[in-house]
Design a binder for these strands. Structure first.
Lengths: 230, 230
DNA sequence: CCAAAAGTGTTTAGGGTACACCCATGT
DNA sequence: ACATGGGTGTACCCTAAACACTTTTGG
């Protein structure tokens, strides 16, 4: 026996919702689709799953193709399978969301796709059901970041507390009290204060911090409260 | 254009992790697989996605085939796509987990599959990667039930607080203080006390409660704390 | 010396936890 | 009357939230 009989086979794709943070706003890395149909339209980066790779491998391959990065934070979001979601041919798409340090991304690697970082507040019309994927990814990011320290994945190795606060304020589109925020963040014990300061954005300068990688991995699934639950 | 060229197509299946609660233990509804390979081995209920149905529709169809139930709580768990997960032919499986009232399930409907309710503590060897699916579903259930009131889906329309407590204790495999538990549950405002009592399991009898369906739906995504965070 | 951002401490209120006794009833 | 499970109240602690002033330094 080497085939199941009387069953239809479908294409399987992965699509990546890639988040980045530029210090001001939360952004998505979008591309201009490279082939027909919908060629040159705004799209998430995606690709078909190949015979020899798993879904996770496909997603990582696609992400590396576009960004040159590997080993970044990525998790499966949802599988999308409406019969008409792709106009050409039925395609099941497994969406992944990724959090990358926007400064590690080097545009020139992938100019073929004309990728651009677009503010989440100004997402253009996207092909197929990609808008739905983005909406779900945004919701998932907010949900998860309220409980787990995943937003560190969007920052460089060294970052300041004001930068971290600004990131949380961007994700939740509201302001938080910096005193309560830094107390909570520091009491989680995940940060190591550095000796040097970031002096570009203020005269006084803000101390850099690094993640304590060991504690970060250990405590990752523990539930934290960096932001007010309301 | 009506096909993407040079791409391989795969079978797509759905598999359902079906939870039930008999008052004592948390259980899974497992079947004996009905066709080769691995015929008669223990398996999750599943089926291939048909050309005219979405993933959600396929999962609901499969669930109804086995249980006769529709409109039950079900959510997508994860897509599984390891190239060798099915020995016969590459198959992408989208797993769903469902919570049903075990008393509404009527065995005779689906005797073809020889289904059985099996305690989560005594899950037998399962085909393919179904064990991995079950493990993930169990983790997801615990995670989600700690934050949202989904476990009510496992109970009949009328239930008592001792029954609800017993359910939570089964899911988390630990004991909770009944005073704190009932205070928290009642303060959520989701329950409506009935006038009648359940008198089978005690002499005094325990009051029945019903869910306030409206508030349940409204507050579903709000985060609750029915059980201690530790 | 002044502007601009960083950094820090206290008070208060509410919620969570721990804990023990009385109640109702069938036998 | 007694055994069995149902139902309730309190005291304490701790965490979360609200809130404002001082520090540093480049220009």
């Amino acid at each position: 026996m080497d085939r199941y009989l009387n069953q239809t086979r479908f294409l399987t794709a992965v699509d990546c919702i890639i988040f980045g943070f530029d210090g001001e706003e939360l952004k998505l890395l979008l591309i201009h689709r490279g082939f027909e149909p919908e060629k040159d339209k705004w799209s998430l980066m995606g690709g078909f799953v190949q015979s020899n790779e798993s879904l996770d491998e496909a997603a990582n391959r696609v992400l590396k193709q576009l960004t040159g990065l590997k080993g970044v934070y990525m998790e499966q979001l949802n599988a999308f399978g409406h019969p008409e979601r792709d106009a050409v041919e039925r395609t099941i798409s497994v969406a992944y969301f990724a959090l990358i340090d926007i400064h590690q991304y080097e545009k020139q690697l992938s100019d073929h796709y004309h990728p651009e970082w677009i503010s989440l507040k100004k997402i253009p019309k996207l092909i197929f059901d990609h808008k739905e994927m983005v909406t779900m990814a945004k919701a998932r990011l907010r949900y998860k970041a309220a409980l787990h320290p995943i937003l560190f994945e969007l920052l460089p190795e060294k970052f300041t507390l004001p930068q971290l606060l600004s990131l949380y304020e961007s994700v939740y589109e509201k302001q938080f009290d910096k005193r309560n925020f830094s107390r909570k963040v520091l009491s989680a014990g995940l940060l190591v204060k550095q000796k040097d300061k970031e002096k570009l954005s203020s005269k006084k300068g803000a101390f850099y911090f690094k993640l304590d990688k060991r504690k970060y991995k250990t405590n990752f699934h523990q539930i934290l409260n960096f932001i007010p639950i309301t």
